[in-house]
């Protein structure tokens, strides 16, 4: 089977996606407030045009890219992914986006690079939530280079046929479906190729609770709650919990990335 064919068939789940309304009214985007409906209420202030992404570090073509320049030449497709929040709720989301690997190829990753670091916009004038030191702003995330290059890892620019809602991380965000949702950083303004594991926001805030990898793992509990099960969003008040899958159901695709690693140690 040609790799291209495997892709087209293999990466979307056939589970029924959540509605656009569910996906765009129930968000964690603390820059706009810590309540689940705060982002949908407050994020309209975010200016997304123009949008510049700084690409720096160990790359051949560093620079400040406009969104159009950055995404030029990328092949967008729909990817219907399970989305599992570290808070133990889950959704199914039809993203539109392109593979991060393609973007990395475009900017040219140099041989010394081992990790990719990302940064969310920090705009105190547009983001009411950053007045409070809930996290050490700007929001930062990172992936190991092989995780970043995995074909499941995408840069998303839309949901269903809509452009990415601001509360979901417009205009461009990361989606890593086998990791807890907070790894999928929103509204990216900086991508850095680096040789050391970059600091990441939740890990800085509480290293005991949030590891760098943060792979979905039903056997490794969050210190304050079990990760064995999850509440699917959208089922009403009598919805049954369901069992959380290893790597959020992407075990076949990604387990090899972590061969030989103790996942309860590298959580």
């Amino acid at each position: 089977l040609a790799p291209g064919l495997a892709r087209a068939q293999g990466y979307s789940t056939d589970e029924t996606p959540n509605s656009f309304e569910e996906i765009s009214t129930y968000n964690n985007y603390y820059e706009f407030g810590t309540g689940k409906s705060d982002p949908a209420e407050n994020a309209d202030t975010l200016t997304i045009d123009p949008w510049t992404v700084k690409v720096d570090g160990l790359v051949d073509k560093p620079g400040d890219y406009s969104l159009a320049d950055l995404t030029d030449g990328m092949t967008e497709e729909e990817r219907i992914y399970r989305f599992r929040c570290v808070e133990a709720w889950s959704m199914v989301i039809p993203w539109r986006g392109f593979e991060l690997a393609d973007l990395l190829d475009k900017v040219g990753v140099q041989s010394g690079a081992k990790y990719v670091a990302f940064e969310t916009a920090l705009r105190p004038d547009e983001m009411p939530g950053v007045r409070f030191p809930v996290l050490d702003w700007p929001y930062r995330e990172g992936l190991r280079l092989d995780e970043a290059r995995h074909p499941l890892t995408i840069m998303a620019t839309g949901i269903y046929d809509e452009p990415m809602p601001k509360q979901n991380g417009a205009p461009i965000r990361l989606v890593v479906p086998w990791k807890y949702g907070f790894k999928s950083i929103k509204s990216i303004v900086r991508i850095s190729l680096v040789d050391e594991m970059p600091p990441t926001s939740w890990n800085i805030a509480n290293p005991r609770e949030y590891g760098f990898y943060s792979n979905v793992n039903p056997q490794v509990d969050h210190p304050r709650w079990s990760q064995a099960t999850e509440r699917p969003i959208g089922g009403g008040i009598f919805a049954k919990r369901k069992e959380t899958q290893m790597f959020n159901g992407y075990e076949q695709d990604v387990a090899s990335l972590y061969e030989g690693m103790d996942l309860s140690e590298n959580f």
């Binding site: 959540n18 309304e21 569910e22 009214t25 129930y26 689940k36 409906s37 709720w89 509440r231 969003i233 959208g234 009403g236 008040i237 919805a239």
Partner: peptide, 12 residues
């Protein structure tokens, strides 16, 4: 909650 007026995560 029963009638679906508490948003998408009524239990919480």
């Amino acid at each position: 909650g029963v009638t679906g007026n508490l948003g998408v995560d009524p239990v919480k």
